[in-house]
């Protein structure tokens, strides 16, 4: 049995479980089961949830509820696909918010964006910084852009145990935009500058554009 309930919660005033928490808690499980360093390769969320989340680490595991996403981790060239399920029942417990870790956001007319970050240097703190940055960049498109969600991450090589730069710069370059079912979906390239910075990767967000 390789299905685990993740130790995640509703941070601050949020009414959803952050993807960064799901990927980090899962990463800890995957890394603990491996003798070699593990990297996060991709993740895709199809639904947000305010409930607890279970992860099925083995493809042979039966579905553990309503599937809300998947991720791929890689160790020593071997990829492992995990599936996320929301746990039926009450909302997850509320946990303390954390301070903003990005600053100096600048966005041009083509939605290219940069910011500075100061983080603890962990995988989770880096992921939080990236999502905070890209979400803030989307919010500058105007007050009519609401419900901005992190939905996917692709083409990544994000080590789970490496030390990320404690400070540096993030850059977002928009690449693809589509309107699907009334929501704007974006794909952008994220580049990081700083000592030991990870390689660039693609990130997807979804948002509602009110008429």
């Amino acid at each position: 049995m390789t299905v685990h309930t993740l130790d995640v919660g509703l941070r601050g005033t949020r009414d959803y479980i952050q993807g960064s928490q799901i990927l980090s808690r899962t990463g800890e499980l995957v890394q603990a089961a491996s003798d070699v360093p593990v990297v996060l390769v991709s993740a895709k969320f199809t639904q947000i949830t305010e409930q607890l989340v279970r992860v099925a680490l083995d493809p042979a595991d039966e579905d553990a509820g309503n599937e809300i996403g998947r991720a791929q981790y890689e160790a020593d060239g071997e990829r492992q696909t995990v599936r996320f399920f929301e746990v039926a029942g009450p909302a997850a417990a509320r946990i303390d918010d954390v301070a903003k870790i990005t600053s100096g956001l600048e966005v041009d007319a083509e939605h290219n964006a940069t910011c500075s970050f100061a983080i603890a240097g962990s995988f989770e703190s880096y992921l939080v910084a990236v999502i905070e940055f890209v979400k803030a960049a989307h919010a500058t498109r105007g007050a009519e852009v609401v419900d901005i969600w992190f939905t996917a991450l692709m083409g990544a090589r994000l080590p789970l145990t490496a030390t990320y730069p404690a400070a540096g710069t993030l850059r977002l370059t928009p690449k693809i935009e589509r309107i699907v079912d009334g929501r704007l979906q974006t794909l952008g390239l994220v580049e990081t500058e700083g000592p030991g910075a990870p390689l660039p990767f693609q990130i997807c967000f979804s948002c509602m554009v009110r008429a």
Binding site: A152, I176, R178, D181, Q185, L187, Q202, C204
Partner: peptide, 13 residues
């Protein structure tokens, strides 16, 4: 799916 289509277009371009 809709998310994959974004990646597909990115890879193609």
């Amino acid at each position: 799916d809709s998310l994959d289509s974004m990646t597909f277009l990115f890879e193609l371009e």
